[in-house]
Design a protein around this nucleic acid. Structure first.
Length: 708
RNA sequence: GCCGGUGUAGCUCAGAGGUAGAGCAGACGAUUCGUAAUCGUCAGGUCAAGGGUUCAAUUCCCUUCACCGGCUCCA
């Protein structure tokens, strides 16, 4: 697997790492780096230590990961960070013993026997405590593949390796946190305790790592968002629903400006659509029921709510009365027919919705008969009431855009039609998955849908990819990965629309564009959208979490569901292809990522506070000079403000630096006399005096050109 | 959603079964200063919410809510 080397250093250990969902092959395992071997070995040492304290522990999997290693363990004792010290003590002993990692190859039967006896993942045989997870792991090893065991000291484990030579090779390690994980990642399996740690060749490297982690935490968008007053969350508003403060709103509006300019130049038309729509549209689009659990529950508009409640109540009363009446009068007699099926009353009561019909009218008192008729009437009336009208908050903009496409007759001459909107979508993400701005429940998407013919597809798709790259150059993104997601033929008709030829055709088209454009990408099977293949751009947050920041998807299925058509040159009807694209993703995630990318030190064009004019002292002529400069900047659309108060200059500068104001113009009497301003840049310090007009012109051009 | 952790002033955090503290931010006053903080005064809290134990709970217990970490890198 290719690994990018981070240029700025902070992200080195968070470099992209693509692992397929499938079990890692032996071949891949043998490509483990030295550090990964060491960490994998540390996981075995961790298991050894845990077993010395809790011999009954059952182990599942203990691989190396991006930032260290873990081992999954089942244990009735809840391991907490308070236990770390004693576990680490035992680990140190094992490392000090400098035991060799001995590899042995065994037959499947031998391995199974060792697992049954509890020996695998144990320090000794444990009768009655079979290594159940190891048995499960064993089952995943393909027939014919070598089965190997590794042993360090008394600890014997089913393991494909590879390891370092001796436990003593683990120079430095530390347990970091404990979490939970399902065995084999399946929530139907038992939940295990996952003990995380990290390990390095030596102490110095480990210390460097922890320093870097601290640094990374400082650029976490959640921390900076608070410090710079960009956004906030409020319990009363709801989880995952960010409130954009004025500073954050500046970022949004600058991004929108960029997107609107870029899209206008690229021939997009802007549209606007409501935040919700009727149920029926989402039945057409296929979001219901398949996407339903990611959508907020429906809002029900029930014109007949009161009437419905009244009738339901009445029907329930009649039901009770009929049953009671029938029972008391004719116990054990079949007197009631329900939807044509006669059944005795005694015993189970018929269901409320069922219609009663007396079968033995001669014996039924009039009163009872009247009640049955009333019941039937009530029931029928209830059935005649219109269904309530249901509205859903939109989780995607595509259905609305499809409706716009379909709103007027389209000709091939109208294509490609590019409909763009910063549409606000709402998704009911699981509570545990929310994460600052990176995963939210309300989001504004840099969305557009391009309707085109098959012939136009390649050019359109290529142009979208170029738009990404253009944006990424502006922002100076270097560490990202294009991920091409394709379908899995085995899941046609389930996870993916059942159109094998179309899948193949569009995937080939997309792959072609990628290769022709010389774009570096990884292809991931089984990750496509249900309606077509897609390209996602993956980035990593400050603390190393992977996110999709932009997406470009092909849709050859949903336009047909909406019966979208255009008139062809030969006067026939054809369904267009649709490209869903969001190069700037959503405001929420994109800005979350930008905050971390820039560590809050935004370029001038984006900075919420672009210029602060600071006077040294409060002399009237000086303040007047400062005010004039602020006014001129603001007249030119620059977010400038003056700090003319009585604080000391150093104090004003510190305030501005802490707010990460991009440019500070410091004015003293010397500047006033010379017609100068002293320019100070955030993080760069004083860069010297300049003529006032020159300084203003520089600021304006840097903004206009969106210079980094 | 599930497992674990956390929740004290706007922010960062201290504290303890006997009724709450600091720094910064804020307000007011003084300070006239050349590139990351001058000084003083004042104000700030139902200690997340609800319930329980107790003479007494912010502290112990339970529930709820929110946030954080993990559940995706599976011998």
């Amino acid at each position: 697997m290719e690994r990018e080397i981070a240029k700025d250093g902070w992200s080195a250990t968070f470099a992209p790492h693509f692992m397929s969902d499938e079990r890692k092959t032996l071949e891949q395992r043998n490509q483990m780096t030295d550090l990964e071997r060491l960490r994998h070995s540390a996981a075995h040492v961790l298991a050894t230590a845990i077993l010395r304290i809790w011999p009954e522990a059952q182990f599942a999997a203990g691989p190396p990961v991006e930032q260290g290693f873990y081992y999954d363990v089942e244990l009735s004792h809840r391991i907490t960070p308070e236990d770390f010290a004693r576990i680490e003590e035992e680990m140190k002993k094992e490392i000090k013993a400098n035991n060799v990692f001995e590899r042995t190859v065994v037959s499947r039967a031998e391995a199974l026997a060792l697992a049954e006896s509890g020996r695998l993942g144990g320090l000794s045989e444990r009768p009655g405590n079979a290594s159940k997870f190891k048995i499960g792991n064993l089952a995943d090893i393909p027939e014919g593949e070598e089965i190997s065991l590794f042993k360090n000291g008394d600890f014997l484990d089913l393991c494909a390796g590879p390891h370092v030579m001796r436990t003593g090779n683990i120079g430095a390690f530390k347990l970091t946190h404990v979490a939970s994980a399902y065995y084999k990642g399946d929530e139907k399996n038992p939940q295990l305790q996952r003990i995380y740690g990290t390990a390095f060749k030596n102490k110095t490297q480990m210390e460097e790592y922890f320093t870097m982690v601290e640094e990374a935490k400082k650029r976490d968008h959640r921390k900076l968002g608070k410090e710079l007053e960009l956004f906030t969350f409020d319990e009363d508003v709801g989880p995952g629903l960010p409130l954009w403060l004025p500073n954050g709103t500046v970022l949004i509006e600058e991004l929108e400006k960029l997107a609107k300019e870029t899209e206008f130049a690229a021939g997009y038309d802007r549209v606007r659509t409501p935040h919700l729509a009727r149920e029926n549209m989402y039945l057409t689009s296929g979001h219901l029921p398949y996407y339903a659990e990611s959508m907020f529950p429906a809002m029900e508009l029930d014109e007949f709510k009161a009437k419905r409640a009244e009738l339901t109540e009445r029907r329930a009363q009649l039901h009770g009365m009929i049953i009671a009446g029938a029972k008391s009068l004719m116990v054990g007699t079949t007197i009631v027919r329900i939807h044509g099926v006669t059944s005795p009353i005694v015993g189970g009561a018929p269901k409320l919705e069922q219609v009663f019909e007396l079968t033995d009218k001669g014996r039924a008192p009039e009163q009872l008969e009247a009640m049955v008729l009333d019941y039937k009437r009530t029931d029928e009336e209830l059935m005649r009431l219109d269904e309530p009208d249901r509205y859903y908050l939109k989780a995607m903009n595509c259905p609305h855009h499809h409706k716009i496409f379909g709103a007027v007759p389209r000709s091939y001459r109208d294509l490609p039609l590019r409909l763009a909107e910063y549409g606000t979508c709402y998704r009911y993400e699981q509570s545990g998955e929310l994460m600052g701005l990176m995963r939210v429940r309300s989001m504004q998407m840099n969305d557009a849908h391009i309707y085109c013919t098959e012939e136009q597809f390649e050019e359109e798709f290529r142009a979208v990819n170029e738009m990404y790259l253009k944006y990424f150059r502006i922002f100076g993104f270097e560490k990202y990965q294009m991920r091409f997601s394709t379908h899995d033929p085995a899941k046609l008709g389930q996870k993916f629309v059942d159109e094998p030829e179309l899948w193949k055709k569009t995937e080939d088209m997309v792959r072609n564009v990628l290769i022709k454009s010389g774009i570096n990408y990884v292809e991931v099977p089984n990750e496509a959208a249900f309606y077509g293949p897609k390209i996602d751009v993956q980035v990593w947050s400050a603390i190393g979490k992977e996110f999709t920041i932009a997406t470009n998807q092909v849709d050859f299925a949903v336009p047909a569901r909406f019966k979208l058509q255009y008139r062809t040159r030969d006067n026939a009807f054809e369904t267009p292809l649709c490209i869903h694209r969001a190069p700037l993703g959503t405001h929420e995630r994109f800005i979350g990522f930008l905050i971390e990318h820039y560590a809050g030190n935004f370029p001038l064009w984006l900075a919420p506070e672009q210029v602060s004019v600071i006077t040294i002292g409060t002399d009237e002529p000086l303040v007047a000079y400062g005010k004039a400069i602020v006014a001129e900047l603001r007249a030119n659309g620059v977010r400038a403000q003056g700090d003319f108060g009585t604080d000391k200059m150093q104090g004003k500068i510190q305030q501005a630096e802490q707010r990460k104001v991009h440019t500070m113009l410091v004015l003293g009497n010397r500047d006033l006399e010379a017609g100068n301003v002293s320019v100070r840049l955030h993080g760069k310090g004083n860069v010297g005096a300049k003529k006032r007009d020159e300084a203003i012109a520089d600021i304006l051009s840097a903004i206009k050109e969106r210079r980094a």
